[in-house]
C-alpha cells in the first residue's frame, strides 16, 4: 500500500477528547503517527476516543504506537477507546488480538459512553 501524510483533527467533547487521524499508517508514516498520538494522549481527559474511520490500514508499528500512547495516557488516568474502524482495520485488530486489549466501538457515541 502506498503511503502519504496523515491528517489530524482534534476536538474536546466533555470529559473526552476526540482524535481523528486520516490516512494509512505504514512503515513510512508510523513514526509520525506515534509521535502525534502520544502528544494527544497527554491531554488528560477521562477518555481519548481515537476515531479510526479515516484510517485505511495500520501496520504493526501503528498498532504498537497505540500501546505506547495508552501507556502515556495512563500516566494521567486516560483510557484510549478505538471507534469506527473500517472492515480492514477491524480484521487487523482481530488478527493482532488488539481488540482484546483495547475497547473497540462502532460509533463515537458508544465510545463516549464506555
Amino acid at each position: 500500500m502506498g503511503s502519504g501524510e496523515i491528517a489530524w483533527a482534534f476536538e474536546e467533547r466533555g470529559n473526552a477528547s476526540l482524535v481523528a487521524p486520516a490516512g494509512r499508517v505504514d512503515e513510512a508514516t508510523a513514526a509520525e503517527f506515534a509521535e502525534r498520538l502520544s502528544k494527544f494522549a497527554e491531554t488528560c481527559r477521562d477518555t481519548m476516543i481515537l476515531d479510526l474511520e479515516g484510517i485505511a490500514y495500520m501496520s504493526s508499528r501503528g498498532l504498537r504506537a497505540l500501546t505506547l500512547a495508552q501507556r502515556r495516557a495512563s500516566e494521567c488516568g486516560t483510557t484510549i477507546v478505538l471507534a469506527r474502524p473500517n472492515p480492514t482495520m477491524r480484521e487487523i485488530l482481530a488478527i493482532s488480538r488488539y481488540d482484546r486489549i483495547f475497547t473497540v466501538t462502532e460509533t463515537i457515541e458508544a465510545a463516549q459512553d464506555d
Binding site: 512503515e27 501496520s59 504493526s60 504498537r64 488480538r97 482484546r100 486489549i101
Partner: peptide, 23 residues
C-alpha cells in the same frame, strides 16, 4: 505470540508475533 500478547502479559518474554514478522 499474538502482537497483543507481546505488548501486554508476555512483554519481555523474548518473543515476536506473526504480524511483526510479516511487516
Amino acid at each position: 505470540y499474538s502482537l497483543a500478547d507481546t505488548v501486554s502479559m508476555k512483554e519481555d518474554w523474548g518473543h515476536s508475533s506473526n504480524i511483526v514478522a510479516v511487516d
